[in-house]
Design a binder for these strands. Structure first.
Length: 360
DNA sequence: GGCCCGATGCGTGACGATCT
DNA sequence: AGATCGTCACGCATCGGGCC
């Protein structure tokens, strides 16, 4: 980054706004997002793709500020720039509405351990070996640790962290109960699901709640419509009438199974760059009919996509509402552990459920 | 990386019953 | 009558899981 560092110094002397300013102090280096001259001193901006300001962004700015000041650059204010998730694109993007700003100078100034932490972290990097750190909630916070799986490989195959009630399982874990088998029989697992998980492990068997499954099947109304959307989302909306990170459906698959178990398949795939939603809605309305259960896996996803479509294309509102009311969630049975194979290890995604049922 | 949802359990406030 | 206690419902933050 030698060239960038030199160019940064250059632009500082000219009092210009600098994008990706680079600076060095001792063995510390940063590349900041924006360094902006102001009346007396400079402002630092950190651009985030997130829709809110998070605590973990603050030390980043404090680190940048520390290096700047060691270079004799006085930092006046620090800002986080983040995305306004309520922004609706209409025509050209309006940057000032898409991007929100929060002055975090006060929070940044409260951080005074940059020097000692930097030394500490560099030592860790230089020693080349990961630290001995015990498994805890911190494995996921504020970011998931890249060594998470590696650590958990050393746990029993069926370990308590696979239970669903996290307060309980951390409690067990901290008491040294790592294996689900070692949970005492009289230990009250407040959650019925955790009872199922333990029973399945203890008795090494698949647990099937036939009544619940029968009820589920009785709810189904033919014809059955198996629906699955594919979506994409972008921080900066690309279509009018859409928001940051809004999931835009561009493809669906629809299998229709009638009373005689005859199956027909329809699908939709967007063409080219234009907004796929209007055409998708026309096709879906035609193909999904007006009666019969609509079966999805994990309905929150499909419902939220459909609800947004209704908001953005109000003329389809009643058709979408009807469709939502027909939705039945196939994941529900697995979420409730009405069918549970111990090899699912507490999970109920398609990826866990399919091998549990088909054996492959 | 992001969003959304459901489960969980804590804190709070309303309410009624009981105590002083 | 006012204080105190217990219950209950609800809001909330958090977590973890799904989806992409």
């Amino acid at each position: 980054h030698g060239e960038n560092i030199k160019e940064t110094q250059n632009l500082i002397h000219q009092s210009k706004t600098i994008f990706e300013a680079c600076m060095v102090y001792k063995n510390l280096f940063f590349k900041g997002d924006i360094l902006e001259p102001s009346a007396d001193g400079w402002n630092l901006y950190e651009m985030k793709a997130s829709t809110k300001v998070k605590d973990e962004y603050i030390p980043d700015l404090a680190f940048q500020k520390y290096i700047c000041e060691k270079n004799g650059i006085k930092i006046k204010n620090c800002f986080i720039e983040y995305i306004n998730k309520d922004y609706i694109k209409q025509g050209n993007i309006i940057p000032n509405e898409l991007v929100l700003q929060e002055d975090v100078t006060g929070d940044v100034n409260q951080i005074d351990d940059i020097e000692e932490n930097s030394e500490k972290y560099i030592k860790i990097i230089e020693q080349g070996e990961p630290l001995e750190i015990s498994i805890s909630k911190k494995c996921n916070k504020p970011y998931e640790c890249p060594l998470k799986d590696e650590c958990r490989n050393n746990l029993p195959e069926y370990h308590v962290l696979q239970l669903t009630n996290w307060r309980k399982y951390w409690e067990l874990f901290e008491d040294g109960i790592l294996d689900i088998k070692d949970i005492p029989k009289d230990e009250i697992l407040s959650s019925d699901k955790d009872q199922v998980i333990k029973e399945a492990v203890d008795e090494n068997k698949i647990i099937i709640n036939k009544d619940k499954i029968r009820n589920f099947l009785n709810k189904l109304q033919y014809s059955l419509y198996y629906l699955d959307f594919e979506t994409f989302d972008t921080a900066i909306p690309i279509f009018d009438q859409s928001r940051p990170y809004q999931k835009i459906p561009f493809q669906y698959s629809l299998h229709i199974q009638d009373e005689n178990d005859k199956v027909k398949h329809f699908d939709f795939l967007a063409q080219r760059e234009k907004d796929p939603r209007p055409e998708l809605l026309v096709r879906l309305e035609k193909e999904i009919g007006q009666t019969g259960s609509v079966i999805v896996f994990n309905k929150t996803f499909e419902i939220s996509v459909l609800k947004k479509l209704a908001e953005d294309f109000p003329k389809y509102e009643s058709f979408i509402k009807d469709t939502i009311s027909r939705i039945i969630d196939l994941a529900g049975l697995f979420k409730n552990f009405d069918y549970y194979n111990p090899i699912q290890k507490g999970r109920y995604s398609l990826k866990a459920v399919l091998p549990a049922i088909t054996g492959k």
